[in-house]
Simulated assay, not measured.
Amino acid sequence: MLKQPTVPDELVSRPIQTEKRSWRKVWEKIGSNFTLLLLLFWALVSWFPLYWMVLTSFKKGQQAQALPPGLWLKEPTLESYQHVLSSTFPVLRWLANSLFVSVTVTVFGLLLCAAAGYAFARKRFRGRDIIFWMVLSTMMLPGFSRLIPAFMLTLLLNLHDTYWVMILPGLASPYAVFLIRQFMLTLPSELFDQDRIDGAGEIRLWWQIALPLT
C-alpha cells in the first residue's frame, strides 16, 4: 500500500497562528480606538468649563441665568465687557498685576529652582542629600499651615501691600526643584566633562548646558 503523504505539524499550525494574530490585531485596534474615544471624551469634559465661561461672557444677563441654560450663542453681545471696563473698579490694573506677578514668578522661579536642582544633581558637597530631603519634606506641610507664619513674616519684614509678598513665596518651589534635579541626573556626565576640559566654570555649565536642556 502506498503511504499517504504526511503534512508537517508546522504547516498545520501555521493557519491557526495566522488566525490568532489577525484576531489579536483586531482586538488591539478596538482597544486603541476605545482609548482614543475615552481620551477625546475626557478632553471635552476638561475643556467644557472654559467653553462655558467664554460662552457666558457673550450672553446677556437674562440669557446667562436662563433655565435650562443654552449651549449655543443666539444673540452674542459685548455688554458684559463694556460694563466691566467702564466700571469704577480698576480691572485693567488687576490684570496687569496678575500678569506681572505670574511672569516674574515663572522666570525667576525657574532660574532659582534650576540652579538648586543643578546643585543637588551635579555637585557633591557635605550634607547634600540631607538638605535635599529637608527641601522635599516641606511638600508634606499643608499650605494652610503656612498662612499665619507667612503673614507674620511679611509684617516683620514690612512687605505687606507690595508685589514682593506675592512674588517671593512663589520663587522657591520644592516640587520644581525635585523635578529638575531628577531630570538633570539623567544627563550624561560627558556633556559637562568636555566643557570642563575647555575651562568652563559651573555657572557656564549650568547656563549653557543644563538650563537649555531643562
Rank of each mutant, 00 (worst) to 15 (best):
P8E: 11
A96N: 05
K74M: 14
A121H: 02
S80Q: 14
E190T: 15
A114I: 03
G201K: 05
P90G: 00
F58S: 02
M184K: 04
C113M: 01
T162C: 13
A116V: 01
Y51P: 03
L55C: 02
G61C: 03
F125Y: 15
A150L: 07
V135Q: 00
P68C: 01
E75Y: 14
F183I: 10
I148N: 03
L38N: 15
P49L: 02
R126D: 13
R146A: 00
Y51Q: 00
T106M: 13
T106S: 12
G127V: 02
P212Y: 14
V103F: 13
S137R: 07
Q82H: 15
W42D: 09
K74T: 15
K25I: 02
T18N: 13
I131A: 06
F144D: 12
P174A: 03
Y175P: 06
L85H: 11
W207C: 09
T88V: 09
E79A: 14
M1V: 08
W23P: 12
Q62K: 11
F132E: 02
R204V: 08
L111D: 00
D161S: 11
L85V: 15
L2T: 06
Q65T: 12
Q65C: 10
F41Y: 15
P5T: 08
D195T: 10
K74D: 15
T106V: 11
Q82I: 14
L50N: 03
F178M: 15
S98D: 00
D9T: 13
L110Q: 11
L67H: 08
L71Y: 04
L37Y: 15
Q208W: 10
G143Y: 05
T104G: 02
F144Q: 09
W72H: 05
Y51C: 04
V26D: 11
L153H: 01
S137V: 00
K59Y: 00
W27Q: 08
I30T: 12
I167V: 13
F41N: 13
A200I: 08
P15R: 03
S46D: 12
I167G: 08
L111V: 09
F120N: 00
P169E: 04
T138V: 05
I131P: 01
A116K: 04
V103E: 06
S145K: 01
I209C: 04
G117I: 03
